[in-house]
C-alpha cells in the first residue's frame, strides 16, 4: 500500500490552452501533501492529472509523465480506469450516489465493476471502510438508509469510505472541506491524519490554515496573469513554506498580500 508519485515535466492542455506548465516534483508515500494557490492557478487541474480524471473533460490532454512507484500512468496501453483504482479521488462537494443506500455506496467501487463478493466479505469491507472513515459509529444502525440523508460532513466521510473501500494506493482530495461546516471540517482533518499511515494523500485547499495544520509538504501554484499557464512555484516542507519561503510570490500569498 501507499506509493510514491514522481511527476516529470508535466504540461496540461485544454485544447490549445496550456493550463499547467512544466511541473516536476516527487510526492512521498505515507504523507500529506497540500497544494495551495490562488483561484485558477491550475492546482485542481494538476490534481486531476494525477489519476487521469482530467480526461473526462473534452479536449484535455497531457504531456510529460507521472509515475506511480516507477510505473508511468500515461504509458502506452495504460488503462485510465485501472489508474483510478490505484489513485482514488474525493471531491469538493460530497457526492454519494442518490439511488444507493449507505452500504451500497461503500461497496459502489466493487459492485459497479460487476465484481462478485461474498456477503461476509462485503460486510467486513463495509465495516472496515466506514471505520477507516470514522463514520461507523454514526451510521452502523442505518446502513440501508439512503446515503443522501446524511449531513454534509457525514456524506463527505462516506465518500472517503467509498474511496478507500477500493483499496487505492493514493487518495487525492479536491478541496474536501470547502462545502463543510467547521466541526465537520475538523472531523475530516482528523481522518486525514489517520489515513496518512496507509495512503499517500494529496489535498488541494483554498484554506492556508488547513494546509499548515494537516500537511507535511506544501506546493504553491501560481499564475503570472490571466491566460498564462499555472506553474508550481515552490515545493517544500510545510513549515518552511509557511515560515521561511524562498520565493517572493509564496511569501506574498501566504501573508495575504494577494489571492
Amino acid at each position: 500500500m501507499s506509493k510514491q508519485i514522481d511527476v516529470k515535466d508535466l504540461n496540461i492542455y485544454y485544447g490549445d490552452f496550456l493550463a499547467v506548465q512544466d511541473v516536476s516534483t516527487t510526492i512521498a508515500p505515507r504523507s500529506i501533501t497540500a497544494l495551495i494557490g490562488p483561484s485558477g492557478c491550475g492546482k485542481s487541474t494538476f490534481l486531476r492529472a494525477l489519476n487521469r480524471m482530467h480526461e473526462v473533460i473534452p479536449g484535455a490532454k497531457v504531456k510529460g509523465s507521472v509515475e506511480l512507484d516507477g510505473q508511468d500512468m500515461y504509458g502506452r496501453g495504460v488503462d485510465p480506469v485501472l489508474v483510478r483504482r490505484k489513485v482514488g479521488m474525493v471531491f469538493q462537494k460530497p457526492n454519494p450516489f442518490p439511488t444507493m443506500s449507505i452500504k451500497e455506496n461503500v461497496l459502489a467501487g466493487v459492485k459497479l465493476n460487476n465484481k462478485r463478493i461474498k456477503k461476509s466479505e462485503a460486510e467486513e469491507l463495509v465495516e472496515s471502510s466506514l471505520k477507516g472513515a470514522n463514520l461507523w459509529n454514526e451510521v452502523k444502525d442505518r446502513l440501508d438508509k439512503p446515503g443522501s440523508g446524511l449531513s454534509g460532513g457525514q456524506q463527505q466521510r462516506l465518500c472517503i469510505a467509498r474511496t478507500i473501500a477500493v483499496k487505492p494506493e493514493v487518495v487525492l482530495m479536491d478541496e474536501p472541506c470547502s462545502a463543510l461546516d467547521p466541526i465537520s471540517t475538523l472531523a475530516v482533518e482528523d481522518l486525514m491524519a489517520e489515513l496518512k499511515n496507509d495512503y499517500t494523500i494529496v489535498i488541494v485547499t483554498h484554506n492556508m490554515q488547513q494546509a499548515a495544520r494537516v500537511s507535511d509538504k506544501t506546493g504553491f501554484f501560481n499564475i503570472e496573469g490571466t491566460g498564462k499557464p499555472g506553474k508550481l512555484v515552490e515545493y517544500d516542507e510545510t513549515s518552511k513554506i509557511f515560515n521561511n519561503p524562498s520565493e517572493k510570490a509564496t511569501e506574498d500569498y501566504i501573508s495575504g498580500r494577494f489571492g
Partner: peptide
Amino acid sequence: ELREASYALGVPKWL
C-alpha cells in the same frame, strides 16, 4: 459529480 465519483472509483464509462 455522480459520473466523476464513479470514474474516480475506477468504474469504466459504460458501467
